[in-house]
Amino acid sequence: MEVFRSGAHEDLGIEIVEASPEWVAIRIPFRPELARSAANMSIHPGVVMTAMDSGMGLACMMNLKESSSLATLDLRYDELRSPLADQDIEISVHCKSVDDGIVFLTGNASDSDGVFAKSVARFFLTGASSEFFRNTFEKLANLPDSGSSSAGGAI
């Protein structure tokens, strides 16, 4: 699904696995330059947080009734263990509520052994919608299957 591709997404090679109002899934393909150290070749937490923030922003947009710009207020990232080395990572995000302009979201990061990190975040709907958000919102609204996609594309 080619919704949009910002510099940060392109740089990290982040891909959408699925996007619907219920949940958003994103994959981070492993690359050695994204690793934590030569001794621990698992994907760096900074990369996981970037994908988490992106997935949460997309989940916000999938749950809006009309286009709005949005901003991350805060993001908490708890790492249960280090992810497995040399492996892709998948992020899954759920939008828990959209209330009074504040969106509450939770997310998990998983490798082949299961969940290794959890996140919670709050986003703020700033109201005024830029062309970037309007275009993205329109593309999401026009996706087949009522806004869901599993095409495995880039954002």
Binding site: G7, A8, H9, G46, V47, T50, A51, M52, D53, T72
Partner: peptide, 9 residues
Amino acid sequence: FHGGIICGL
């Protein structure tokens, strides 16, 4: 800047 890049930095 992407918020995640700030987190990573």
